[in-house]
Structure formats: structure tokens, C-alpha cells
């Protein structure tokens, strides 16, 4: 069963690129070129996620979002914006968006975030006590991490980083997603701080084992899981 995505974007090149790339990933994609049209499509509620440009002719992206939420449509929305400033992000998130992406974005970033939004369990609030990937196990209660039964000692932040990766295993996570999810940094420091953290974690998790679990995805970010 393929998932349906609605793309509301007025810039043709960007829209074409998103639609083509998402279709290539196996999504069913509809496109609306202005706010009114987009809102009309979105209100039927059959989409798994909506990609919404902030600056739109006719009806502004934020107005579309407000109208959607007012109509009790809970479809996850990811905002695309040229306004990189921090306050624009906050404004987007407080007015009901689920995520926020600043142009120019890498498609891999959009894809990673979309998958995350769609995969999010809608109601399941059961408390997890262990996370695992292959032979790597993390006990959230006593904060022990083992691989193939061997104990791995982690610093608190390394623990949180690994926890983040485990919660999104088999999914590509980007550097900015990690900055937001692990460190709550909502800007890109522009240096390779994340890479250094990941490479340290990788040494502890993968060194001495045949099958590496931490993978670098070129041009996108990282992924925890089976080789691929």
C-alpha cells in the first residue's frame, strides 16, 4: 500500500523535483500550485503527509495551515520556507506544523523527515524499556548498552545519540535532525560537530565487530542498521 503525499508549492522547479523524487521513492504524490487549491485538496484528509511551502500566491502557507487545523485535519504537515530565521521556525511550529525545513534543502533531508512523520505512532504510548538493533541492545531503565552480550560504556550524550539512532533505526537521519533531536540546536553550526560525535560513537559500537551498524549515507547523514 503506497502512501499519499500532497505537495503545495508554487515554484515549478522545486515542485517538479519534489514530486519526481517522491514518486521515485514509491509515494503517490499530488501537487497543488497555490494555497486555495492546496487547501481544497488537503481538507479531504486522505493524505499521509503534506509538504507545504510557506510563501504562496493567493493564500499564504501559514493561512492554509491555520485553516487546515481549524477544520480539525490532523495530517502531518512539513513546512518549506525561505525564511531561515529562528523566529520563522518557531512561528511555523507553534501554528500547528509538525516539522519545518528551510530551503534550499537536500531531498534526502525532506525524505528522512517525511518518513519520520509518517512512521510516528499516532496513539501508542506504551513505555519502551529496551531498544535494539541486530545484536545491539539498549536498556533504558538501567542505561546499559550491550553488543553481542558485551558491555559498552557510553558517555551520557553518546547514550542519547545512540538512543536517537536506535529509535530511528533503518531510517536515514540527517545532521540537522540529530542536532535538533539530540542537542536541541535549531541551527546549523556549519562545522562537523555531529560527525565527530558520530565517529566516536561508531568506534565504541562497531570496533571489534564484523558487521558495522553505523552507516554514513553520502550527501544525507547517517543510518543505524543493517548494511545498505
Amino acid at each position: 500500500m503506497s502512501q499519499k503525499i500532497l505537495v503545495i508549492e508554487d515554484d515549478r522547479t522545486t515542485a517538479d523535483f519534489i514530486v519526481k523524487s517522491l514518486t521515485g521513492e514509491g509515494f503517490v504524490v499530488d501537487h497543488a500550485a497555490d494555497g486555495r487549491d492546496g487547501l481544497f485538496h488537503a481538507t479531504d484528509g486522505s493524505y499521509d503527509a503534506i509538504v507545504l511551502d510557506r510563501m504562496l500566491p493567493g493564500m499564504d502557507g501559514m493561512a492554509v495551515l491555520a485553516a487546515l487545523r481549524a477544520a480539525k485535519v490532523a495530517t502531518p504537515v512539513i513546512i518549506l520556507s525561505n525564511l531561515g530565521a529562528v523566529d520563522a521556525r518557531v512561528e511555523g511550529l507553534t501554528s500547528g506544523a509538525n516539522d519545518y525545513l528551510v530551503k534550499p534543502f537536500a531531498f534526502s533531508e525532506l525524505l528522512a523527515r517525511l518518513k519520520l512523520l509518517i512512521a510516528k505512532p499516532s496513539g501508542g504510548t506504551q513505555v519502551e524499556t529496551t531498544l535494539a538493533c541486530e545484536d545491539l541492545e539498549m536498556n533504558l531503565l538501567n542505561r546499559r548498552v550491550t553488543r553481542a552480550g558485551q558491555r559498552i560504556e557510553l558517555q551520557p550524550r553518546e547514550f542519547r545519540l545512540l538512543e536517537y539512532l536506535l529509535r530511528h533505526k533503518e531510517q536515514v537521519v540527517t545532521r540537522t535532525m540529530m542536532l535538533e533531536g539530540v542537542w536541541e540546536y535549531h541551527f546549523d553550526p556549519g562545522t562537523n560537530v555531529v560527525d565527530v560525535h558520530v565517529s566516536r560513537l561508531r568506534r565504541k559500537v562497531d570496533d571489534g565487530f564484523d558487521k558495522p551498524l553505523v552507516h554514513t549515507i553520502r550527501g544525507a547523514g547517517y543510518m543505524l542498521g543493517k548494511a545498505g
Partner: peptide
């Protein structure tokens, strides 16, 4: 400034998209 951002970033966005596709 906002529209300058729009105008300048869109080509950068497209450039990056093209490069990614090529990659």
C-alpha cells in the same frame, strides 16, 4: 531581505536539487 532570500535561495535550492539528482 525576505524576498531577496526567496530570490537567492530558490536558485540555490534548484542547483542543489539538480546536483543531488546527478549524484
Amino acid at each position: 531581505t525576505d524576498s531577496m532570500a526567496h530570490d537567492l535561495r530558490s536558485p540555490v535550492s534548484r542547483m542543489k536539487a539538480t546536483l543531488e539528482q546527478a549524484l
